Amino acid sequence: MNRPLSRERRSPAPEEPTGRAQPPDELVRADRRDERRRRIVIVGGRVAIAVLVVATWQLSSDRIFPSFYVSSPLAIAQRLVDLIRTGELWPHLGQTLIEVALGMSIGVPLGAVLGIALGSSVLLGGWLLPYMMALYSLPRVVLAPLFIIWFGVGLLSKVTMVVTMVVFVVFYNVYQGVKQIDRDLLDVTRSLRATRLQTLRWVMTPSLVPWLITGVRLSIGIALIGAVIAELIAASEGLGYYIKYSSNLLDVTGVFAGLAVITAVAIALDQLLKTLERRITPR
Score class of each variant (00 low, 15 high):
residue 42 I to K: 05
residue 279 R to M: 08
residue 147 F to K: 01
residue 9 R to E: 11
residue 236 S to E: 14
residue 128 L to Q: 03
residue 257 A to K: 03
residue 112 A to F: 09
residue 110 L to Y: 02
residue 156 L to M: 12
residue 272 L to S: 11
residue 28 V to Y: 07
residue 116 I to Y: 11
residue 255 V to F: 10
residue 267 I to Y: 11
residue 259 L to K: 03
residue 24 P to T: 14
residue 54 V to N: 01
residue 94 G to Q: 00
residue 45 G to M: 13
residue 249 L to M: 14
residue 195 T to E: 13
residue 102 L to P: 07
residue 18 T to L: 09
residue 24 P to K: 09
residue 272 L to K: 02
residue 8 E to L: 09
residue 143 L to C: 01
residue 43 V to H: 12
residue 138 L to D: 03
residue 90 W to S: 06
residue 151 F to L: 15
residue 279 R to C: 06
residue 124 L to C: 07
residue 47 V to P: 02
residue 217 R to E: 07
residue 20 R to I: 12
residue 124 L to I: 07
residue 181 I to K: 11
residue 99 E to V: 00
residue 215 G to A: 04
residue 68 F to L: 10
residue 18 T to K: 05
residue 229 I to M: 10
residue 39 R to C: 03
residue 52 L to C: 11
residue 25 D to F: 13
residue 59 L to C: 05
residue 9 R to C: 07
residue 261 V to G: 00
residue 133 M to N: 06
residue 274 K to I: 02
residue 283 R to P: 02
residue 109 P to Y: 09
residue 103 G to C: 07
residue 33 R to T: 13
residue 130 P to Q: 04
residue 39 R to E: 09
residue 21 A to G: 06
residue 91 P to I: 01
residue 190 R to K: 15
residue 58 Q to F: 10
residue 243 I to V: 14
residue 137 S to W: 04
residue 216 V to K: 01
residue 174 V to K: 04
residue 132 M to A: 04
residue 87 G to Y: 09
residue 139 P to C: 06
residue 241 Y to M: 08
residue 184 D to P: 00
residue 97 L to V: 01
residue 92 H to E: 06
residue 4 P to Q: 14
residue 170 V to F: 07
residue 244 K to A: 15
residue 223 A to P: 10
residue 141 V to E: 05
residue 46 R to T: 06
residue 144 A to M: 10
residue 204 M to S: 14
residue 72 S to T: 01
residue 151 F to S: 06
residue 140 R to S: 05
residue 81 V to W: 15
residue 274 K to N: 05
residue 138 L to T: 08
residue 238 G to S: 08
residue 179 K to P: 02
residue 258 G to D: 07
residue 220 I to G: 00
residue 74 L to V: 11
